[in-house]
Write a protein that binds this DNA or RNA. Structure first.
Lengths: 209, 209
DNA sequence: ACGTTAACACTAACGGTTAGTGTTTTGGAA
DNA sequence: TTCCAAAACACTAACCGTTAGTGTTAACGT
């Protein structure tokens, strides 16, 4: 604890990382993802290839530099919601925000690039698998009711699916709502004893056991 | 149409393909997926590297040689079911069979190898995305009721998820049933007019439009 | 029998990634 | 202040999956 978590060293490291990521994204957008090699990025960012790979695990990871945010926002929506807010609406709200964020015009060129590159699409899919696993663990820890592990994992997958499906729909926001109605119904079924599915709040202590 | 679909040429090609696949799987199981190079496989199968890649698009594809079967069985379960069999149970039955097939002891070494290799897991995931897209199209074409495109795509994803999730559950068969109860509820919600969700059969012509 | 087609082979390379090795910078301790 | 251990960084050279380019051979249809 002798370090205030922001030494000069860490600042420099973060700066190098950021410089690499910015350079990479700029080159990718300028010349196309496939037409820019790792050696090009490293040279333009004025670092060695090995340095680049000490900051990013792969070429694709350069594009999804901020994916930690995604994961944290999602798990936060599950574990850090207000005590009277039901789970599914909280998740829906967060997915809404995330979809809105990545369908904004400012992000359009990046997402177009991703959609055009099979390698990037594949990488994103495997990223989502990790996100679903994190979310499943958060759900298992946060859920007020004793759903099974399988149910939590399933809900996590469905939520991630909602994000992916909504993005490729013609009306992403409407698609989120449509899919979340399905998810809500699926989740209701896993509740041991909830008679009416139209109650003013989904919570309210289903009995444990 | 003058060819009876089994000329000598096609037989030879199929034989070469099979020889490559068999050799690859044998070597992978003997020495480990990561420790066997493409050049090793090609040499052992007595073909050139370029020949190998004319039969298989990638190294990972050597392992999932039969994935067309998976796709066809799934779409067949959606489009080719008996006229009085409801959709969801038909899909559940097929997923049951597929899960049982790949959790059999004879397939255990292969699936252990897949689970241990990140590259293979990633490839399998992107394969499933393709399967989900095929299934979504089959659903849109086969469903008796006028569900939306988004609903069909969502159901397809959920079904593929069921397969993936069940396989990593402690009791795969039970997990299939548990997840399909969730899927059934999700699908009911998309039916325009089904008053009781406990009706004897989900089918029965909700009005179009 | 013959031209077309497609499978197959070979060499050489491209591009992402890693190993091995050494140098510089940084933060903290003596 | 001085010195040390750790970590970032650099460089070379390679590994490995994959593809391009170029031929050669064998099978199919006419």
């Amino acid at each position: 604890m002798t370090v205030p978590t922001t030494g000069r060293r860490e600042r420099k490291k973060a700066a190098t990382r950021q410089k690499i990521a910015d350079t990479a994204l700029r080159l990718f957008l300028e010349r196309g993802y496939g037409s820019v090699g790792i050696r090009d990025v490293a040279a333009e960012a004025d670092v060695a290839v090995t340095t680049l790979f000490s900051h990013f695990a792969s070429k694709e990871a350069l594009v999804f530099e901020r994916d930690d945010d995604f994961e944290q926002r999602l798990t936060q929506a599950a574990t850090g919601r207000a005590p009277d807010e039901p789970l599914i609406p909280a998740l829906r709200r967060e997915i809404h925000a995330l979809v809105r964020h990545c369908t904004a015009e400012s992000a359009a060129p990046v997402w177009r690039m991703i959609e055009e590159s099979p390698a990037l699409r594949e990488y994103e899919e495997s990223m989502r698998l990790r996100h679903a696993q994190s979310l499943a663990e958060a759900l298992a820890a946060a859920t007020d009711v004793p759903q099974s592990v399988t149910a939590c994992r399933t809900l996590a997958r469905f939520v991630i699916d909602a994000y992916a499906l909504a993005r490729e729909a013609t009306d992403p926001q409407a698609a989120v709502d449509e899919i979340f109605e399905m998810i809500e119904a699926a989740w209701q079924v896993t509740c041991p004893s909830v008679s009416g599915r139209q109650g003013p709040a989904g919570r309210g202590g289903p009995q444990p056991g």
